[in-house]
Design a protein around this nucleic acid. Sequence first.
DNA 1: GTCTATACCTCGATAGAC
DNA 2: GTCTATCGAGGTATAGAC
Lengths: 201, 201
Amino acid sequence: MTHDRRTRDEIVEAAHQLFYGHGFGHTSLSDIACTGKLKKGNFFYHFKTKSELLIAVIDSRLARSVALLSQLEMNAASPMQRLMGFVRSQLDDQGEVLQHGCSVGTLCIELARMQSPVLQHAREEFMLHQHWLASQFAEMGHPDQGITLATHLLVRVQGAAIMAQALEDPSIGAREISSIACWLQDLASHPACAPPAHPAA
Amino acid sequence: MTHDRRTRDEIVEAAHQLFYGHGFGHTSLSDIACTGKLKKGNFFYHFKTKSELLIAVIDSRLARSVALLSQLEMNAASPMQRLMGFVRSQLDDQGEVLQHGCSVGTLCIELARMQSPVLQHAREEFMLHQHWLASQFAEMGHPDQGITLATHLLVRVQGAAIMAQALEDPSIGAREISSIACWLQDLASHPACAPPAHPAA
DNA sequence: GTCTATACCTCGATAGAC
DNA sequence: GTCTATCGAGGTATAGAC
């Protein structure tokens, strides 16, 4: 039972790494088997299909995201600090995002193109981020535009991740961090009712 | 000879559509054969490998991009109008980009994950856009920051395309167009030597 | 629970008739 | 130049011994 659970988690972790680095479609069960100690034929004791394995991977990512966000809330006092903490966690020079792209974004794109029903589940991580960011913007004094501003922030983070990966230039991440910081500064100094200069509709 | 060329072009066009909509890896030669009149086994008279077909598709896309950019130069008088013309061409509500993502961005991501040598070729379209945009920014009075500003613009466009596709919400494109318009307005009203408020490093 | 062996499929690519 | 037939590799998934 417990042993069951542990090897299952090991499979999920190995799959997470490979799906992230090479994509879902281009990762075979043999690839996953190679990294671990298990043989290929044994996956189907733990998961009925490859898609079910993917769902488990997404669940594990969601749990990580929840942990990250709550850690940001504990470590940063102001909404502005929390927002910048989020941005840095995504676009850190050392992080994987600039190298492999954002795991959520790239997965969603791949699943959308495959017309996979799992897309809906993968999307939940985006929405988790979106609503957390929106609540930070609300606390900053922009309750009505929370979702809009959150989406705009995600647009920038995703765009930076793509361009950094496509052009193999991690400095794009650092530059976008600075740019976002400027934007948030502007936003914070605006009164709540006035339309903010930038991501307004 | 001429007939040769025409069926070849038809294959390239069909492949372009399918690679765009479903990705390179998830499009089989059988899929391409289904849309056209040719049988599968016949591809290899026109292309030695599937990768070679991909290169031909990229070449055709590059030609289209060149045509688009020169058309923008003809139709718009000011750099600002040209920049906005570019942004609209990418994020137009009717366009394919919001539905399928940007063809360049999604292809680069997929090829990077496959560690395909063709990535370098696919990247050329990004660089074409990047340098054209940079020259527009230079003409607007920001010659030193041309590439930086161009990259930032691409970050936003790519990000909007990803988020629109991932969340299946095309309105993200329209909102990002407005946001970029505001940013460019700000930029235009700044003197060349002063650091612009937003995408500065 | 983990292994080996294998069924069954689809893919990219080749061979050779026409 | 286009067709049919087919090969070999590699994929997901299953069966059954241990």
